[in-house]
């Protein structure tokens, strides 16, 4: 297949030495194997995520995303904009739709952008990396690159909220999206069915309201265990962080003994394609994904 090029929006959490550093590293490795070139949007800014609302309000938030899209249109013309973070993707796509539906919002956003010497035109699609894999490659094509199938590993594919709602991937249901399971199976792993696949992990409230939201994380992990999973895999940096780093806290609160690795699809793909543990950034896990490490070593 010919090389594919995308305009890349990594997002704050995926910057070097930020909380999803391992997502960025493994995405870069995965893209190398798939012959994808990611052209980073020069000087991109944070999208404000969902939690920016209290202080940020409406237009400032839309303008944040419009700035990224304007920079992308200007510097990476003719490409689709691709985000790896679910929240980044959602904010960008939402801003794009709001502007498309309202001439007033377009004028207002561009008036603000003019202060930074930019103009938003709206001529690029805003996509999530999972869409690129599923739609521009497809599972058969993805399967072709597998050198080391993830045989015998049982994964709980945790889709969560924002890669699933309100947009989701084309053709998927909100209650039981299949693409993540299909990705796992394409890499030779086993995707276990479980009932908390699209449960919200609490999002930003995992941090600001830990007492109230840790039950969400407990329910997700418990169900994954109950259905035989030995590893969780997600497409979202906040899901990953919430479900991985709070396990100790959840154990204290609920008397559980959780210790389940939480990985990204990009790490699975990198390992299955023959990448090293370093390329898959497995050293970035707080709870080591030993089964993946073993396969990477083989």
């Amino acid at each position: 297949m010919a090389k594919k090029t995308y305009s890349f929006y990594p997002g704050c959490s995926s910057q070097t030495k930020a909380s999803s550093d391992n997502y960025l590293k493994s995405t870069n490795s995965m893209c190398k194997y798939l012959d994808i070139e990611l052209k980073e949007i020069p000087d991109w800014n944070c999208c404000g995520a969902s939690i920016g609302y209290a202080e940020g309000g409406e237009l400032p938030r839309i303008t944040l995303s419009a700035r990224n899209m304007a920079l992308s249109e200007q510097h990476n013309p003719g490409m689709d904009l691709v985000a790896t973070c679910a929240a980044c993707w959602l904010s960008t796509r939402e801003a794009k739709e709001r502007i498309a539906h309202s001439a007033q919002t377009l004028t207002e956003a561009n008036t603000a952008l003019a202060e930074a010497g930019l103009t938003y035109k709206g001529n690029q699609a805003a996509r999530h990396m999972a869409e690129v894999l599923v739609e521009d490659f497809g599972f058969d094509e993805l399967k072709r690159g597998v050198k080391k199938p993830l045989q015998g590993i049982k994964f709980a594919g945790y889709v969560g909220c924002q890669t699933n709602r309100p947009f989701g991937l084309a053709g998927e249901s909100f209650e039981n999206p299949k693409y993540l399971d299909n990705l796992v199976e394409a890499m030779g792993g086993e995707a276990v069915p479980y009932d908390q696949k699209v449960t919200c992990c609490g999002g930003a409230l995992a941090f600001s309201e830990p007492e109230k939201s840790q039950k969400q994380i407990k329910d997700i992990i418990e169900s994954a265990y109950d259905h035989g999973a030995e590893m969780i895999v997600t497409p979202c940096p906040l899901c990953q962080a919430n479900v991985e780093i709070y396990q100790g806290e959840v154990n204290k609160r609920f008397g559980t003994k959780f210790n389940i690795p939480v990985t990204y699809y990009s790490q699975l793909i990198t390992v299955a394609y023959g990448g090293t543990a370093a390329e898959a950034a497995l050293d970035g896990q707080l709870i080591r994904a030993t089964r993946l490490e073993e396969i990477a070593k083989k």
């Binding site: 309000g57 400032p60 303008t63 207002e108 956003a109 202060e115």
Partner: peptide, 9 residues
């Protein structure tokens, strides 16, 4: 840019 967006809003 943010200042202007806030003003308009």
């Amino acid at each position: 840019m943010l200042k202007k967006a806030r003003e308009i809003e």
